[in-house]
Design a binder for these strands. Structure first.
Length: 610
RNA sequence: CGGGGUGUAGCGCAGUUUGGUAGCGCGUCUCGUUCGGGACGAGAAGGUCGUAGGUUCAAAUCCUAUCACCCCGACCA
């Protein structure tokens, strides 16, 4: 499929002309005291958003224009990826969630209320149940599939702690899409739709002018690389992603694989002890940090032992990583072969695990307990230093730790039952899983899109199965694909701003051009020129804002920079005397505008818009 | 949910320790002077001090309760 060139400017669409004094753009010098992140501060100061209550915002006219531009790009790409737009209710009866068990999965994150009849109702956090309910009532033949449906709508999540303005809200705008298939592979299968969505997402964020990364995320139920996150690259982002500079591999820190780490010279667990085993009294030090401080050892010399349980509590998994590493629950789950949760402290004690002071030895000799040891923890000889590894670990009794722990000598019963594998989070500097010799680098990002292969999770739970061409009844296979629209707007500001204000990429700027006449009397030369120019620009497809306020120039310039319109045309006596206007890009430093003949302005703007 | 903090004019804040008739800056309105990077002067409007009780001759200030909001952490398709 050939991708048409998407110029943000098109003369098939007439632009709008708005005047500042007739719209609502309440800029302020001071941001609300509670606004800390740049996007929150600037969107508030520039008159885009106002908070109504925790995590709930008004989108004022400027914000609404940006949201619409993002939404329009999304619509075009969704439509060309084969999606059909629809609108589903926000009010969802709780019975639907009971079918899938998502009420429990969501927990208090799900907004709930009772209507006047006492019917329990939820405010939709996403609409998997609703769309599945819709489809199961309307589609009964394989001939109707595949289908992809999407909507752009308000979503609700009762976040414990909404924060950072639009980045984590309780009420937000999201594009959610759902695809339905009879098969995973082949024509019309889930993989095709997923790939089309992947490409569509790349197009969307590219067209929005965002600097973004696509990363592998926690796998869906089908396995493989069944989930991708789209992250705006930005230092202030909440999420850490790891990238291989050679292969281009990128993944969420929670998901990231670690490449070949090189076997220790004396083999796993092999090597002599660093000294005689010694028990140390460590009062009030259950955490790694406390012990390190108390015993004056580095975290990288600690063995961290974390106890997990299966969901039903019957099976146990003990994971051991180096003290400066973090256990990765997903990797533990994959290695164990069943879903795990952090062990209940009381149950763990009853099983003989002295939580806070557990050593790897505790995993031996207990029924139904598996021992997983991370590769970096399963060594007894320190190849880097060329001497025995000095380990400190728990002593399996309260307030005590062990010095000079040695796997072969002190955990002889545990070693034979241990599985050496990768059970920790990847970190910057770890070997890349896709390119030999390359090291992973860390980067921060803001998640703005996430695509999933759902499989039959919802269709199974809700009994959505239809006849295929071989007259077999089969559960419908689904994919789901989300974009945080309001979050994308905020993420863009996080990514693109300076001390003076927002710097919108042209495709999603609320207006492309701001005209700043120095005199605003209707009969003034400046206003006359502003009217003529705005007409010509609008005819060429530009959205134009005329700052017709009777303010001093400094105020207008500051506000223009603050709200971030990409092109500014300043109409003053000096330039008008030469039949010119001053042309300045928001991205250029202050005071660097140049004169452009009025007759040339449209051409110049078109040039800048490319 | 753990820890910390804040509610006083549209916005930003002082005043609370030591109770005594509610203040500053920005913004708004009027008049005048200004007019290319957040001007100046004069005047004006605007607050049941989050809410409810209590103590007191007197409460923004002290006591009790309650509500709201924010930050850090945990959690998070």
């Amino acid at each position: 499929m050939s991708t048409p060139t998407h110029s943000p400017i098109s003369n098939s669409r007439r632009g709008v002309i708005h005047t500042w004094s007739r719209t609502l753009i309440p800029t302020t010098k001071d941001a609300p005291g509670d606004a800390e992140s740049p996007s929150h501060r600037l969107l508030a100061r520039a008159g885009y958003i106002r908070r109504l209550t925790a995590g709930v915002y008004d989108y004022l006219p400027l914000a609404t224009r940006v949201l619409r531009k993002i939404s329009d790009i999304i619509r075009e790409e969704m439509d060309s990826a084969g999606g059909s737009e629809l609108l589903m209710p926000i009010l969802i009866p709780m019975e639907l969630f009971a079918e899938t068990g998502r009420a429990e999965a969501y927990g208090p994150l799900l907004f709930q209320m009772d209507d006047r009849h006492g019917r329990r109702t939820a405010l939709g956090p996403t609409q998997e149940e609703v769309v599945t309910e819709l489809m199961r009532g309307t589609v009964s033949s394989y001939k109707s599939l595949p289908t992809t449906l999407y909507q752009i709508h308000t979503k609700f999540r009762d976040e414990f702690r909404p924060r950072a303005g639009l980045l984590r809200c309780r009420e937000f705008i999201m594009k959610d899409a759902y695809s339905f298939h009879m098969n995973v592979e082949g024509k019309g299968g889930l993989n095709d739709a997923y790939d089309a969505m992947y490409k569509g997402y790349v197009n969307i964020f590219t067209r929005c002018g965002l600097d973004f990364s696509v990363v592998e995320a926690e796998s869906g139920p089908i396995g493989g690389s069944a989930s991708h996150e789209f992250m705006v690259n930005c230092e202030s982002g909440e999420d850490t992603i790891l990238k291989c500079p050679v292969s281009g591999y990128a993944a969420n820190a929670e998901k990231c694989e670690i490449g070949e780490r090189g076997a220790p010279s004396k083999g796993y667990f092999g090597g002599e002890a660093s000294g005689a085993l010694e028990e140390v009294h460590t009062p009030g030090c259950p955490g790694i940090e406390d012990v390190c401080k108390f015993m004056k050892v580095k975290a990288s010399n600690m063995l961290k032992t974390v106890v997990f349980q299966s969901e039903d509590g019957a099976s146990w998994v003990v994971a051991v990583v180096r003290g400066d590493h973090d256990v990765n629950e997903g990797k533990v789950r994959d290695a164990a072969g069943f879903k795990v949760k952090l062990a209940d402290a009381a149950q763990a004690r009853a099983k003989g695990f002295e939580i806070g002071f557990v050593s790897p030895r505790a995993a031996a000799g207990k029924a139904g307990v598996r021992l997983l040891v991370d590769k970096d923890a399963a060594v007894s000889f320190d190849d880097a230093k060329g001497k025995p590894m000095f380990w400190v670990t728990g002593a399996d009794k309260k307030d005590h730790h062990l010095k000079h722990f040695n796997w072969g000598r002190d955990a002889a019963e545990a070693v034979p039952v241990a599985t050496v594998t990768d059970v920790r989070n990847a970190m910057a500097g770890d070997p890349s899983p896709r390119a030999k010799g390359a090291a992973l680098v860390a980067q921060r990002g803001i998640e703005v899109g996430h695509i999933f292969k759902l499989g039959t999770k919802y269709s199974d739970a809700m009994g959505f199965a239809i006849m295929d061409e071989t007259q077999q009844r089969k559960s419908v296979i689904m994919g789901c694909y989300g974009i945080g629209v309001s979050r994308t707007m905020a993420a863009c500001v996080e990514m693109s701003h300076d001390d003076d204000g927002i710097r919108w990429p042209l495709p999603i700027a609320p207006y492309h051009v701001i005209i700043t006449p120095m005199k605003v009397e209707p009969e003034s030369r400046a206003m006359q020129a502003a009217c003529e120019l705005s007409g010509a620009l609008a005819a060429a497809g530009f959205d134009v804002l005329i700052d017709d306020r009777d303010e001093r120039p400094g105020v207008k310039f500051k506000d223009a920079d603050l709200i971030g319109i990409p092109i500014r045309l300043t109409l003053g006596d000096k330039s008008l005397a030469e039949d010119s206007v001053e042309f300045k890009l928001r991205s250029a430093p202050a005071g660097t505008g140049g004169f452009v003949k009025i007759a040339e302005v449209v051409r110049k703007c078109l040039e800048a818009a490319r």
